[in-house]
Design a protein around this nucleic acid. Structure first.
Lengths: 147, 147
DNA sequence: CTAAACCCTGTAATCGTTACAGGGTCAAGC
DNA sequence: GCTTGACCCTGTAACGATTACAGGGTTTAG
């Protein structure tokens, strides 16, 4: 039973790059690890679970700040868990809103694409549509795009 | 009929910030404008349509590079319009893939949220689920997240 | 004549990750 | 011994599009 990993081994075991691991440490999501005499980071088993937690959160689309909050809850087992529910629920609503927006964009874009009948750019309906002011920002609330 | 706008007026008429307009100019999406003796940018009517084009493209989720290609096509009316169709179609497929991915995330997150029955963080199923390795990156292909 | 509102340039921030540069360390093979 | 390759370190910059400064100049209305 080996319980001292260098960063590369943590990386391969978790599917997370060494750069990201160092990044998480800098942001405070991972504890400051022990160092060898030469300055190499050495990790124990626990960090594998913690990195796994982070990657799973990221794979769900949570941002690192939310994951940090969830880790803080996890680090204080006596805290009420409602905050975790808040974070997850808020993110779910965020996702649902984004999906709705992307679907609207895809619908509009599908119409744009179908208008193209080939030919010269001068007559291209895709380009014409993009020039069309009646569909653009000032009409709808389209501040953020993040698409 | 006034046909000389300063950047701020272009901004209010197009719903696009002056910073973004300068940014588009730096990237080459907008032509270098005339300057007053004091160095102020002065624009004519044409830039309003061009900025409108860009904003409409952005509101559809196109990136500035794609928009630049579309503008180039528009600037050369004799070019074949197939490239525009390519760009739009490619982006549409990109959008559809993203939607599918976000929907999968939302489904998974919905399951996670429903598991929370309140109580202490130590027992919180949201946190437990995030620690669960069987769902994480190494199992599925979850390299890019961009959610 | 002064204050508000505008403009300029250049730089840094955001988010998470990747990719360097420039250097040190450690193993195996010759 | 000595080299080669695989690791590790730090710090910085890049990606994309936008926003937010700092630090300065100009115009306009009161």
């Amino acid at each position: 039973m080996k319980n001292a990993y260098r960063i590369g081994e943590v990386a391969t075991r978790t599917g997370c790059s060494p750069e990201s691991i160092r990044h998480y440490e800098k942001l405070g999501l991972l504890p400051t690890p022990k160092r060898s005499q030469q300055g190499y980071r050495y990790y124990d088993q626990a960090v594998l679970e913690r990195v796994g937690f982070i990657r799973h959160g990221r794979s769900l689309g949570l941002d690192l700040h939310s994951i940090q909050e969830l880790l803080a809850l996890s680090d204080h087992p006596d805290t009420d868990c409602g905050a975790a529910d808040d974070i997850a629920t808020r993110h779910l609503q965020h996702l649902e809103a984004r999906i709705a927006k992307l679907q609207a964009l895809a619908t509009e874009l599908r119409q744009v694409v179908q208008q193209c009948r080939g030919g010269k750019a001068a007559d291209c309906q895709i380009i014409q549509t993009l020039y069309d002011h009646t569909l653009d920002c000032s009409e709808r609330g389209c501040g953020q795009i993040e698409a």
